[in-house]
Simulated scan of single mutants.
Amino acid sequence: MIHLSEVSKTFPVHHRKGPLRRTRKLVTAVDAMSFDVAPGEFVGYLGPNGAGKSTTIKMLTGILTPSSGRIRVAGLDPSRRRTELALRLGVVFGQRTTLWWDLPLRDSFALIRRLYKVEQQRFAARLAELTELLDLGPFLGTPVRQLSLGQRMRGDLTAALLHSPALLVLDEPTIGLDVVSKATVREFLARVNAEEGTTILLTTHDLGDIERLCRRVMVIDHGRLAFDGTLDALRATAPADRTLVVDLASPVPAPALPEGVRLVRREGPRLWLAIAPETNAASVVAAVARDHDVADIALREPDIEDVVTRLYRGSPVEA
């Protein structure tokens, strides 16, 4: 579905040097990027601000032309066959809307039907399906400017999927949403991927989206692909501390802890212990239970956010 081979993108940047002189410098936003995405995959695309994520997406959608390398999306060259690609592609930018601001949501969808030349009967069936899945019915007649952020995002997702694209590209689709709206969007995307086989490329800073939706993760940093694999493989690449939450039967002085374990937090009889990646968690549990009466105990794997942060910083393990 997506093929990149040694793709680079450079931009000229001009700096003023004196009142009459300017210097020109080439800045590399994407540097020799190569990867493939198979049909039906749900891929998370991560990176800090300025890493090259948006530039990659703009090249995939044909907005930008690569400086070098080869790109194919759904078998097409995006920059040369942009109009044809648009019929196979859906795009949602969380900070921008494709809907008409002063029109009711229903009218925006009608205009999008004409843009994509979707047959009326097929459009009606598809709109009814998406309206049910995203609970759009109560505000189909509401002007877009009067919708809440969560309602507008559901409208944007519907607009992107009305023509049943093979590939859906999402850029921060849950930004600013409340917990309920996030859950609705996540559940919908998982269903579209599983039931319709839609390939989804998700760019987000909300790593909760990645953990709940993506089976594969790509991490980009300084224009280069720093990691490509599963979440478990990512955790192994840049291991972070696990957290052991211990509820003691009664408050006691801080227990003696084995090497590789530190007390992070304490509230009455509850202790939060950080366990280093190389330390065996079972031995820590046994040591605590041997010396104290334990009411409950739970082991939490490191948050994906901690793992990605370590990868960005260039941990010794990665090096």
Results as ranks from 00 to 15, higher is better:
residue 83 T to D: 01
residue 84 E to H: 02
residue 85 L to M: 03
residue 86 A to L: 07
residue 86 A to T: 04
residue 86 A to M: 08
residue 87 L to T: 01
residue 88 R to G: 02
residue 91 V to R: 01
residue 94 G to T: 01
residue 96 R to H: 09
residue 96 R to K: 14
residue 97 T to F: 09
residue 100 W to L: 15
residue 100 W to C: 00
residue 102 D to E: 13
residue 102 D to S: 10
residue 103 L to S: 03
residue 103 L to Y: 10
residue 104 P to K: 09
residue 105 L to M: 11
residue 106 R to T: 14
residue 107 D to Q: 15
residue 108 S to H: 06
residue 108 S to I: 05
residue 109 F to G: 06
residue 110 A to E: 14
residue 110 A to T: 11
residue 111 L to G: 01
residue 111 L to E: 10
residue 112 I to R: 12
residue 113 R to I: 02
residue 115 L to I: 10
residue 117 K to Y: 05
residue 119 E to F: 04
residue 120 Q to S: 15
residue 120 Q to H: 13
residue 121 Q to Y: 06
residue 123 F to A: 07
residue 123 F to E: 05
residue 124 A to Q: 13
residue 125 A to R: 13
residue 126 R to H: 09
residue 126 R to T: 08
residue 126 R to P: 07
residue 128 A to V: 06
residue 128 A to D: 14
residue 130 L to F: 04
residue 132 E to Y: 06
residue 132 E to A: 14
residue 132 E to I: 07
residue 135 D to N: 09
residue 135 D to L: 07
residue 135 D to P: 00
residue 136 L to E: 02
residue 137 G to L: 09
residue 138 P to F: 11
residue 142 T to L: 03
residue 143 P to W: 14
residue 144 V to N: 00
residue 145 R to F: 13
residue 145 R to L: 06
residue 145 R to P: 03
residue 145 R to M: 07
residue 147 L to V: 12
residue 148 S to W: 11
residue 148 S to M: 04
